[in-house]
Design a protein around this nucleic acid. Structure first.
Lengths: 357, 357
DNA sequence: TATTAGCACTCCTTAGATATGAGTGCTAAT
DNA sequence: ATTAGCACTCATATCTAAGGAGTGCTAATA
């Protein structure tokens, strides 16, 4: 593109966007003329704004309304204009504290924690929040415990290195003696402990079943159970909160749209797609911003979505997403997500975080 | 009350209510005159309706609109007028089948099942649905398993008779030998298996800790963990679905109210109160109907709430709730809830179900 | 005596018509 | 290059009138 944005145009664009972020109303030239310290009259601003509109950074909802940012405008803002915060920390600390108490609160129950986290995010940002339970890729098995609960039923508990616990009751074809249970336990733990799911290959399994002899069949059932416990499809749990925050933004709350949007937030599968998608693209410190049409989910085309990947420890990763109007407070959201990432990631600095793309 | 409703008034009232349930619009005398087989002119109906209004069963939103049922009218309808269904079973079976597949699908994972159940209820009824995970009152311990996961960490797994599994990792002050773990396991299982939480009393605990000797401290930690696992406060999980169905009913969807209502559906604690309240009153086959102001939750005063208690097996009970407009299809909802109750209650006929109060 | 037809009346709803005002684009002056 | 000024646009709010559904009442009917 040959159009170049000079300093003044940038300032004006930024002013327009920031003002619109706050108010949600189209912003007029007179407002800008006073809002900035450029000391320009509204007329001058008008001329500049006409240019900006022609370049596609802002647009008018209708003739003779003020201007609102276009998707392109938001994009520019997000990419270049907004990274000048980090300054006001006074009230920040309060918020961080709130966040921490939330986190510490129920830390040992992952599920409750994630739910709390989603809620806390929603309350903090005033947007809708969603969060996936961590995926267990590369997460290592720490401990497997079989116990005979009933004659023909085995309880199988799997603990992973990150202290996630999965359990399942297996129905087995015949009774099993205590010694056999013990034998299986030893076998499983010596062979599998310390391995990630991906590292368990066929050769290993056949070797084990060879050793198992008559317990062969049961062993297979157990291994299946372990695999299932780790299976990400099955485990894709998503927690959402603050769906109704949507109503705080008039531009989203006409019945038609709001209703669809909130329904989407109940559709875990759709969200799953969205979140895992963004988990894999590791740009910009793992934080990704989708503006309007950029989001993969059609019902959210009038929103913006910000996602972040968190990493509990090596290989145990999940995604957080914030959904709000296009005019969301990107800076605050990005900041908040970064904080949360930190809280969650237990001091495992990524080898290559990769500054912005 | 000295007013008596003769046969004809009842018929008319019923017609008014049923019509209003379908349309959501105030219903006029002419409509009734044709809708019923009374063969009365609109004028006669008008007279009767004037009477009904005076008695408080119906009311006019404004002069010269049709009539809509009052809370009192709904109450009469629910109590006396509506129990004449059970007839049309053709399409019913389809729905029941749908329900079943939903249920069977993930039966072994309680949580997923409940979530699915809520969803299925919401889809089936077009109202909002919520469901509590079962409370463990009177649910018996089947099996306790301790395992040393790390030197100073014990994994404690509790399986109940209804195959619910709870687990927790305990930090213990000092290392523990394998023999001691074994010893504890034996001790716990012989003493506690087969007991419900309420049956574990202080005498028993002190007897056990007496036996435990040096393991005393750990034993206490384990018992605490068991108690916590069963603690209903902690465990009160509620699953909701179909919140947006609210929008299908214009009388509820003005922004102010709808927003509050949906927020309430995210407030698990409030719902918890509502649902456990109704769990304890066992009228009418465990199904309870709150109309308008009758509900304990203020934000729902323009809705009706129908709750049902389900019982997985003796002592393991939870509650289901359906939230919709006052003009909800009570018959269908009650029917659906009864079906669900049946599906869930695994053929444990209650000793005294108690026909309607 | 119970029912019905008829009519005047009420009042919500809708559509059109009017006014308000925020904001623009353009032109001429600085 | 900037600005003041003015005519113009168009969404929004306000008002009015027309339309219509439904009622209550009265007088006629079976």
């Amino acid at each position: 593109m040959s159009e170049e944005l000079d300093e003044r145009k940038l300032t004006i664009l930024k002013a327009v966007i920031q003002n619109y972020l706050e108010t949600g109303e189209p912003v007029g030239s007179r407002t800008i003329s006073k809002y900035t310290d450029l000391n320009l009259s509204s007329a001058t601003i008008r001329n500049e704004m006409a240019d900006l509109e022609e370049m596609g950074y802002i647009l008018q909802p209708h003739t003779s309304a003020g201007r609102i940012p276009s998707d392109k405008g938001y994009r520019l803002y997000v990419d270049n204009l907004m990274k000048e915060r980090e300054a006001q920390l006074e009230q920040k600390e309060q918020e961080v504290d709130d966040m921490k108490t939330f986190l510490v609160d129920k830390m040992d129950r992952l599920e409750g924690m994630l739910q709390n986290m989603a809620k806390s995010l929603a309350v903090n940002t005033n947007y809708a929040a969603m969060i996936t339970a961590p995926q267990y890729t590369r997460n290592k098995i720490k401990f497997i415990q079989l116990s005979a609960v009933e004659p023909a039923k085995l309880l199988c508990v799997v603990v992973t290195q990150s202290k996630l616990i999965k359990n399942k009751i297996l129905e087995i074809p015949e009774e099993i003696s205590n010694e056999d249970v013990l034998k299986l336990n030893v076998m499983l733990n010596t062979s599998l402990a310390g391995l990630a799911l991906e590292e368990i290959n066929l050769a290993m399994i056949s070797q084990m079943t060879g050793q198992a002899g008559s317990l062969n069949q049961i062993l297979r059932a157990v291994i299946d159970a372990v695999a299932e416990a780790f299976d990400s499809e099955e485990n894709l749990e998503i927690y959402t909160s603050g769906a109704t925050n949507i109503f705080k933004y008039p531009e989203l709350s006409d019945r038609e749209n709001a209703s669809k949007l909130i329904s989407t937030l109940e559709e875990k599968k759709v969200l799953a797609g969205l979140l895992t998608d963004s988990m894999n693209s590791e740009k910009n410190n793992g934080i990704q911003i989708y503006i309007g049409d950029e989001t993969p989910v059609q019902t959210m085309k009038d929103c913006s979505v910000v996602t972040a990947t968190y990493e509990l420890e090596d290989g145990v990763r999940g995604t957080i997403g914030i959904i709000g109007p296009k005019r969301m407070d990107y800076e605050k959201v990005v900041e908040t997500l970064n904080q949360v990432k930190q809280q969650l990631g237990s001091a495992y600095p990524k080898p290559d975080a990769g500054e912005k793309s």
